[in-house]
């Protein structure tokens, strides 16, 4: 069976339906099966349905995603309580160490993302990885800065990514590689993205899993949890109503 690929961080300008459609078409042409786009919290269910409609036209599966950028752990907890059941993927952009720690240990967080441009704000370390490995959160790495940065800032980023990928591997923490693309020309094929990860020494099988198995597993797990039939991990309602006999 052919492997399915996913890009969980496609960032079209949502105010432009045409650009969104073009980017979805491109994702489909490049070989993706599932995409996710960060949505504003003000987005209504109608907006989400419209995006799902566009993705269906382009033969793609669409997952709703929320990027949280809290200043304090308390703010993160507040947002998680408020939005967890409304979005299929919750990513936390960690801009402080306390937020990074809270995000890593909270099982409601799916993705940990760190700012690419400031190496001092990359708080991913062994303690973070240990916490995240227990809570099933994955480390998300965007490819956009890797192809747009030049010179010393790119060198610093590659060095940080090499260290982080090695820590994540040691603690068996899943890695998700996303495009972070804001335009069509910044989108790449899944295997091109996997090749780019060789720049920070991610081995090929891990790299391919990071654009296929790992992101798809997150979406599958969350869809199951958000389903009305979900009771607890491994337990779900399989039948209800008049055909269900009471003993």
């Amino acid at each position: 069976m052919r492997r399915a690929f996913a890009d969980l961080h496609l960032m079209p300008d949502l105010s432009s339906v045409e650009q969104t459609r073009q980017m979805f078409l491109k994702a489909s042409a490049l070989g993706y099966r599932l995409i996710a786009t960060p949505l504003p919290t003000s987005f209504s269910e109608n907006h989400i349905q419209r995006l799902r409609g566009i993705s269906q036209e382009t033969a793609l599966d669409f997952a709703s995603r929320l990027d949280l950028k809290p200043k304090t752990p308390k703010e993160l907890l507040y947002h998680l309580r408020k939005f967890r059941r409304k979005f299929e993927i919750i990513a936390v952009i960690c801009e402080s160490k306390t937020v990074a720690r809270q995000a890593a240990k909270d099982h409601r967080v799916d993705l940990l993302n760190f700012p690419a441009l400031d190496p001092h704000k990359r708080f991913f370390d062994k303690a973070e990885a240990e916490l995240a490995s227990k809570s099933l959160a994955a480390l998300e790495i965007d490819i956009k800065p890797l192809i747009t940065l030049k010179g010393s800032s790119k060198i610093r980023l590659l060095s940080a990514l090499r260290r982080e990928a090695s820590i994540a591997k040691d603690f068996h923490m899943p890695i998700v590689i996303s495009s972070g693309a804001t335009t069509e020309l910044l989108m790449r094929k899944p295997l091109e993205i996997a090749a780019l990860t060789s720049l920070f020494d991610l081995d090929r099988s891990m790299a391919v899993d990071a654009v296929s198995k790992n992101p798809l597993a997150i979406v599958k797990r969350n869809r199951e949890k958000l389903s009305p039939n979900f009771i607890a991990p491994g337990i779900r309602l399989i039948r209800r109503g008049s055909d269900c006999h009471e003993s």
Binding site: I147, T148, L185, M187, K189, E192, I193, A195, L196, S198
Partner: peptide, 16 residues
Amino acid sequence: RAAVASITEIMAKPAA
């Protein structure tokens, strides 16, 4: 593959 994927412009014009 990685080098080709890192191309964002050709002759200072946007390209992939």
